[in-house]
Design a protein around this nucleic acid. Structure first.
Length: 255
DNA sequence: CCAGACGTTGTT
DNA sequence: GTCTGG
DNA sequence: CCAGACGTTGTT
DNA sequence: GTCTGG
């Protein structure tokens, strides 16, 4: 799964500012004193190394916190050894896995996305699809976060995106024959969002929230390459529709 | 997708 | 070059 | 007891 | 930090 953590930065920044201003991402970032102009340029130009994102936690549910993608549990000695292994957390096991259980209990968060990417396999080729919500510009996905301290006492906030079984739409798109089943991020409806951030909610009730959003709430279209030489990079145009002639007669029947 | 292996003998 | 494992 | 893992996906 | 496998 590939998230639009790169391309939705601008909308994230707008949301964070909580006003309808037409300022561009850099102006907003400077106002927020979260990212510098250089950070934004680097973000747009860079690949996948330690991407930063806004998360919304129970402590400050209305104010975003900057966190690095790839949860580093507080007890880890070397953050490099784990950060890119914890981009996702399987919803089925977040209360069992050593890396996630403390966060599952005490540090749940929300991340807002415009959509995410999956690759469809057909005749030995792969085609990237962008999947978004039919009704929402930005939707919340469930996350877990953690605060790690290095030997100098410096704090690093990190997060993982919780995944769940893929719905019917995902089963059609995400048909990599090597995978046992499709997966998708845990997308939350508005009332589930507040529950996910409710620190008093029992484990049993949290687990009830971990289920795939119905496929008819999502819509998908093909996009240009998102990785490699021809990729457009960390820019909004990465999610623009691009059609492939060989897919014109869709066998999926869904889009 | 990409990185890495890709092999056999049996005393180096 | 092609397959496999991650 | 101690060393080692602690994770998910398959193009983030 | 805590659990597992050896």
């Amino acid at each position: 799964m590939c998230y639009d953590i790169k391309t939705s930065l601008e909308k994230q920044l707008r949301r964070a500012l909580l006003d309808g201003s037409k300022a561009d991402a850099q102006e907003i970032a400077e106002k927020l004193k979260i990212f510098t102009k250089e950070d934004i340029e680097l973000h747009h130009a860079s690949g996948f190394k330690h991407p930063q994102m806004f998360i919304y936690t129970q402590e400050t549910p209305d104010t975003p916190t900057v966190a690095t993608w790839g949860l580093v549990p507080e007890w880890v000695a070397d953050k490099e050894s784990i950060w890119n292994k914890t981009l996702n957390a399987r919803g089925e096991t977040i209360f069992e896995k050593a890396s996630f259980r403390d966060s599952a209990t005490n540090k749940r968060c929300l991340i807002y996305l415009e959509g995410f990417y999956e690759h469809h396999h057909k005749n030995g080729k792969t085609y990237p699809y962008f999947i978004k919500h039919k009704e929402k510009d930005l939707f919340a996905v469930a996350g877990l976060w953690s605060e790690w301290q290095n030997e100098l006492g410096e704090l690093l906030k990190t997060f993982s995106i919780v995944t769940t079984k893929g719905n019917l739409l995902m089963a059609d798109i995400h048909n990599n024959p090597k995978l046992p089943e499709p997966r998708m991020p845990l997308i939350l409806t508005a009332d589930m969002e507040s529950q996910w951030l409710d620190g008093k909610l029992a484990q049993n009730d949290i687990e009830k929230l971990i289920k795939p959003l119905a496929g008819d709430k999502l819509v998908a279209h093909t996009v240009g390459p998102i990785k490699g030489k021809k990729a457009s990079g960390n820019l909004p145009q990465a999610s623009l529709e691009v059609n492939y002639a060989e897919l014109q007669v869709s066998q999926l029947g869904l889009f």
